[in-house]
Simulated assay, not measured.
Amino acid sequence: MQLIFDGHNDVLLRLWENAKAGADPVAEFVKGTKLGHIDGPRARKGGLAGGLCAIFIPPNEDYPPRELDANGHYNIRMVGPLNQPEALNTALSMAAIAFRLEGADALAICRSTADIRAAMAAGRFAAVLHIEGCEPIAEDLSTLETLYAAGLRSLGPVWSRHNRFGHGVPFAFPSSPDTAPGLTHAGIELVKACDRMGIMIDLAHITEQGFWDVERVSTQPLVATHSNAHALTPISRNLTDRQLDAIRERKGIAGLNYATTMLRPDGLENPDTPLSDMVRHIDYMVERMGIDCVAIGSDFDGATIPSAIGDAAGNQALVQALRSAGYGEDDLAKLCRENWLRLLKTVWHEA
């Protein structure tokens, strides 16, 4: 079995939402559930040894439906901005769930690659705290050091909505990622602060202009934790060839997103999506960037994924499909975990 370190999941969001309805998040994760995609038993069964666990603040309005036109195209209206103090309260509530899980020995909150390897060796889920959309962070960055001290080691300045730091892409198919401006002045200062502190910047939801703004301002590898190839699935969330080339040049990573809308040629939210579509995107990105710049960023608990995977327990189905496509064990180790560990060691300023 190839152990997997995953570049993106939303398990904390799912546990937080269920906790609001009265569920016990520790019991749900430790004992297992039929809900969502990740819990302890399913992670162990599928070799999911850890990953970047997103703290994502959901919209404060009903999310618009995906309405298809006669050609099967869609452009979902973006939701509005969030209030920073309220977003921070929600973020701290999600982080508290992670700490409760750590107290129950269900996972380890990792602040270094040594922490990740130690957790994996001990059979504990190696969780890295990530903020997806920086609405919880004050514009003057006064909250950033506190969050770092609590374990934050990765963030995406925006989700697919605009905020004080920059502009996100909508969920639109077919669409270029060049849909709006990029970073604001506050966003530029955020990127500079993250470079100094050793916090990874995630470009998964940012506009193409924002991508190039980060490329210009940051000195670190370029990373899109859960995005695929735009040339194969032209949704606004995927990466153009030019973006993939820039990631290669900076020795960064693009993590394969399991979301069917980002895998299928038709961009549809349809779980009847073959593993071959996942392999096709891996092949394309490996050919374009090299084996060292591609990894996994599942989007478990945040997207509709292929039924051939199902949930975290099904991860090895993708590994076997890649093995059958000709990837050897050394390359599979890179795709599954070693590329992430190499990159995080660099971004976190480890010796």
Rank of each mutant, 00 (worst) to 15 (best):
M120A: 14
R242N: 13
L92R: 14
A96V: 00
P177E: 12
V169A: 10
L256G: 03
G198I: 03
V347D: 07
I97H: 07
H130T: 11
P234N: 04
T90Q: 05
I57L: 03
T219I: 05
H230D: 09
E132F: 10
S176E: 13
H167G: 12
L48G: 11
D311H: 10
Q243I: 00
L343N: 01
E132C: 07
T143S: 05
R264F: 03
S160G: 09
H73K: 02
G123N: 09
A98G: 02
H8T: 12
G267A: 12
G22Q: 08
A231W: 04
A204D: 12
A150D: 00
M289H: 05
S112G: 08
T233S: 15
L190K: 00
K34N: 10
F211H: 06
G255S: 06
E350K: 02
V79I: 04
L343H: 02
A114Q: 07
A193C: 08
A108H: 14
A106P: 06
L318F: 04
P81T: 11
V128A: 08
I38T: 13
C53M: 08
T146V: 06
M200Y: 00
M200F: 04
L239V: 07
L335R: 02
I97V: 12
D213G: 05
T304V: 14
L144G: 07
A231E: 08
V158S: 05
G47W: 03
G328D: 15
G255F: 10
G198H: 06
T273G: 13
V286Y: 01
S142V: 01
C53F: 15
D6C: 04
E67L: 14
R196W: 00
G133E: 03
S227C: 14
P64V: 08
I296S: 02
P234M: 03
I4A: 14
V286H: 01
A325L: 12
N270G: 06
A204E: 04
V217H: 01
D266K: 10
R161V: 05
H8E: 13
V79D: 01
D266Y: 11
L275A: 09
G187Y: 13
A108T: 14
F171E: 08
L203A: 13
V79P: 00
P265T: 12
T225G: 13
E215W: 15
L256Y: 06
S160M: 13
N9W: 00
M94R: 14
N339M: 10
V11W: 03
R248C: 05
P81Y: 02
V169K: 07
F5T: 07
R248P: 00
A98E: 01
F5R: 01
A313R: 06
